[in-house]
Simulated scan of single mutants.
Amino acid sequence: MSVIYVLLAISILVAVIFFIAFIVSVKSGQYDDSYTPSVRMLFEDELVKTPKTSAKEFTKKKIQLNKQV
């Protein structure tokens, strides 16, 4: 039974150490994103959804293109 208490204490100690390491790394800027702002201007355009054309409109456009050629 005393082994459980020892293992519990060790696991809590390890969890606290990892939590402190995480807080230190966040405060030091380890997780700051320095790459995305430099390429954000390349991906700023939003996708434009085109209206769906029906089968009749598609064949009309196809016939018009064939007449032009």
Rank of each mutant, 00 (worst) to 15 (best):
E46G: 00
P37V: 06
E57R: 01
A55Y: 07
K61S: 14
K27G: 02
F58V: 07
D45S: 04
S54Y: 04
D33V: 01
Y31D: 02
Q30T: 13
I63R: 09
A55N: 12
V26S: 00
G29V: 00
F58N: 12
P37F: 00
P51G: 05
I63Y: 06
K27Q: 04
Q30W: 11
K52Q: 05
D33G: 01
E44Q: 03
L47N: 05
G29C: 05
T53F: 13
K60Q: 14
V48W: 07
V39Q: 08
Q30S: 12
A55E: 09
V48M: 01
A55P: 09
A55I: 11
E57Y: 08
S28G: 13
V48G: 04
K27Y: 02
Y35P: 06
K60A: 08
V26H: 03
R40K: 14
T59V: 13
T36F: 14
D33W: 03
S38N: 12
Y35R: 12
S54F: 05
S34D: 15
M41W: 03
F58M: 12
K49Y: 02
S38D: 15
K52A: 07
T59L: 15
V26N: 00
Q64E: 11
Q30N: 11
K62D: 01
E57T: 12
K62V: 04
K62N: 05
T50S: 07
K56V: 06
Y31M: 15
K60W: 07
T53W: 11
S28R: 14
S34M: 14
S38P: 01
P51L: 06
K61R: 11
T36G: 06
K52F: 05
T36Q: 11
S54W: 05
G29N: 02
V26A: 02
F58L: 13
Y35F: 15
L47K: 06
V39M: 13
S28D: 12
V39A: 04
R40C: 08
D45V: 01
D45H: 00
T36N: 10
R40M: 10
Q64V: 13
G29W: 01
L47V: 09
T36H: 11
G29K: 03
Y35D: 15
D45Y: 00
F43S: 05
A55S: 09
Q30H: 12
P51W: 02
E44M: 04
P51Y: 01
E46A: 02
R40A: 15
P51D: 07
P37I: 05
L42C: 04
I63N: 10
R40N: 10
S54Q: 07
T53L: 14
S28W: 15
S34Q: 15
D32A: 08
K56H: 08
R40D: 12
F58K: 13
D32L: 09
F43R: 06
D32M: 07
G29E: 02
V48D: 03
S28N: 15
E57G: 10
M41H: 08
I63E: 12
T36D: 06
A55G: 07
K62G: 02
R40Q: 14
I63S: 09
K52D: 04
M41L: 07
V48S: 03
F43H: 03
K60T: 14
K27T: 03
K61L: 09
F43Q: 00
E44A: 06
D33M: 01
Y35C: 11
F58C: 09
D45R: 03
K49H: 02
F43T: 04
K60E: 14
